[in-house]
């Protein structure tokens, strides 16, 4: 069954003086999906997120979160949203416990309800051994886990992750993504992600690419790859002459040749035509990096601010 739209944005625009930060963008996010919002710095991602969170006022357009129009008040919307900011915004001088206690209180979660939720989150994100430690003295990975715990304190329907894994080591990134994936499966939580890591965006259910405040492309990763990148056939155990005989652009890699084809249909055609060459091969789609480059003409570099 198709899930309902939990975020609906129609013709949203926002400018700061003469700078048009967001220009007439429209998109929807379905409940429970992993939605990736891509763009270089200054593309308008943070402005859009700030409007969704009620931190910024829009110039025009419509923003509906879980059937609540942002113009009719943000209190209900704020209960639906959990946000992991690009940089940790918790209090470095306080302990993990104090931080989470003060933030939980802002949602009315106090006393036993807080202790219970804290236990659940500490177990889920494995931070029960650092509750008494000062936040400023934690490693980047530990801090990020606490940021995520803070965003999840009130069991939000939508988790907004603004470049959540930037600067983290691969292992910590993996742990965080496992937790997020678990939450999506168990709680049908919607994840709204901005990231510089294209392999994270490749796992998304739907991708919107923003460039200079406008939507340059949107679709599922497969749709985008099909529309904006070529397919690749990697053939093992063949000679250079055999690769040349296919009449397609190719590159030599360590133990194989990678042939570029416009689409999967053309790949199939080649295989049928040259069965003697295709004894050991694999077909892969283009990468999200290629999509981003093709759409915006810019390269999104992972980890760079």
């Amino acid at each position: 069954m198709q899930q309902k739209n939990i975020i609906e944005i129609e013709h949203l625009s926002k400018s700061f003086g003469k700078t048009q930060a967001v220009s007439d963008i429209s998109f929807c996010v379905r409940q429970g999906e992993l939605f990736a919002f891509l763009g270089v710095n200054g593309a308008g991602k943070s402005t859009t997120i700030s409007i969704i969170c009620g931190q910024l006022e829009k110039d025009c357009g419509k923003v509906i979160i879980d059937s609540n129009d942002i113009e009719k008040g943000t209190d209900a919307i704020k209960l639906d949203l959990g946000i992991v900011f690009q940089n940790s915004v918790l209090d470095s001088a306080l302990t993990v416990y104090d931080n989470l206690q003060s933030r939980a209180a802002l949602y009315g979660i106090t006393g036993k309800a807080f202790e219970q939720r804290l236990q659940e989150l500490a177990k889920m994100l494995s931070f029960d051994d650092i509750l008494d430690r000062t936040l400023g003295k934690l490693s980047g990975g530990q801090r990020r886990r606490i940021d995520i715990a803070r965003a999840l304190l009130h069991n939000p329907k939508i988790l907004i992750l603004d470049e959540p894994t930037t600067g983290l080591d691969p292992q910590t990134r993996k742990i965080l993504w496992n937790v997020i994936s678990d939450l999506r499966t168990k709680n049908n939580m919607t994840v709204f992600l901005t990231t510089h890591y294209m392999e994270e965006a490749a796992d998304a259910d739907y991708v919107v690419i923003l460039d200079s405040g406008k939507i340059s492309a949107k679709g599922t990763p497969l749709e985008l790859k099909n529309a904006y990148t070529a397919d690749y056939i990697t053939i093992y155990g063949i000679s250079k002459e055999q690769a040349e005989s296919l009449g397609r652009p190719f590159e030599e890699i360590r133990d194989a040749y990678r042939i570029s084809v416009d689409n999967t249909a053309l790949a199939t055609e080649l295989i049928i035509k040259h069965p003697e060459i295709f004894t050991d091969y694999e077909i892969t789609k283009g990468k999200m990096d290629d999509v981003f480059l093709a759409v915006t003409g810019k390269k999104l570099i992972g980890g760079e601010a």
């Binding site: 704020k78 900011f85 915004v89 949602y107």
Partner: peptide, 9 residues
């Protein structure tokens, strides 16, 4: 931190 406080109800 103010942002984090004002995204709450």
């Amino acid at each position: 931190a103010r942002k984090d406080l004002t995204v709450t109800p």
